[in-house]
Amino acid sequence: MTAPAATRAPNGATDAASASPITMAQALNRVLAEALASDPKVVLVGEDIGHAGGVFRVTDGLLARFGAARVLDTPLAESAIIGAAFGMALTGLRPIAEIQFMGFLYKAIGQLAAQAAQVRARTWGQVNAPLVVRCPYGGGVRTPEHHADSLEVLLAHSPGLKVVCPSTPADAAGLLRSAINDPDPVVVMEPIRLYRAGRELVADDAPPVPIGSARVRRTGSDVTVIAWGAMVPVALAGAETAAAMGIDAEVIDLRTLAPLDAETTGASLEKTGRLVVVHEAPLTGGLGGDVVADLVERCFWALRAPPRRVTGCDVVYPPQLLEDIYLPDAPRVAQAIRAVMED
C-alpha cells in the first residue's frame, strides 16, 4: 500500500519539532507514527481515531499519513474493536486498538481477558497475540458518567495481560514502544488529565521503558508512597507538603501495574518501613490492596506502621461537581503520610 504524504504536522511532532518539549499526547502520537512507518504490520483500530484524529488528538494526522488501510475508524462497538484486533494479532499483524474511554472497556472485556489474555496458555505457547490496547482512563477533566473509570483491577487480576500506566511524556513514549514490541497483549492506560498537563523533551531515539520497571520519582527515607498515572503528580505534591513538615517521603511511580516491580517497591519499604498507596479507583478491592498485601508479605519485619491507602471513594464515580472531593489530592496524601508517621 502507498502511504499518502503528510498534509500537516500531526500535533507538531515532526522531526524539526523533536528538539522541543512535547506533551504526553504528542509523545504517544510520535511513537504511533514511528511504529506505523517502520513496520507495515502495525495497524491502528478504534473509534474516531482516523478522520477525527482521536478525541484526545493522540492519533492526529496518522490517517492522512498512512492511509485508511492502516488507521481504521470503527463503529461504536468496543467488543468489535478488540475482537477484530485480536484476530489481526493471531494472523500476523500488530494491531494497536484504542478504547476511547476505559469505562467502555467492559463491553470488550470478554475478548480481552478471556480470549486474548489466555490464548498463549490455552494453546501451550503455540499461539501468541501481540495486541496493544490503549485506554484513556481516569477523572479530573469533568467528563460525564462512565467516562472517568479506572479499571486496572480487572486487568491486573487477569493472567496473561500486561498493564502499563505512564505519568510523563517520556515514559508514555517508552512504555508504548515496549508494548508494541511485546509478543503478548499489553494494555496502556493513558491518564486523560496528563495528556496535556506538562511537556518534556522526548528524544527520538530514547530506548523503550522496560515493562515491569517502576521509577523512583523522589528519593526519601521516612515513608514510601506508591502511585501510578495521574496520581503520581498528586503523590509528588503531597510529598512536598510533607517535606515542609519535616517528613522525607520516597515517591515511586509503578509505571507497570502487571507485572509488579517487586524489587523496587520492596527495597524502598525495607528502607522506610512505612507505606502509603495512592490510586483513583475505589478503595475496596482496588489495586492498592494488592500492593499492600504483596509488600506486607515480603517486608513484614521492616514494617513500622500499618500501610495506608489514599483512594477514590467506594461510590460510583461522581458527577463533575463532586469529582474533586472523590479524587485523592495532595492534602489527603500529605495527611496520610503524616498519619503513617504517627502510627
Partner: peptide, 10 residues
Amino acid sequence: RVGFGAELVA
C-alpha cells in the same frame, strides 16, 4: 494477584 485476599490482607 488482586484477588479478594489482597483486600482482606490490607
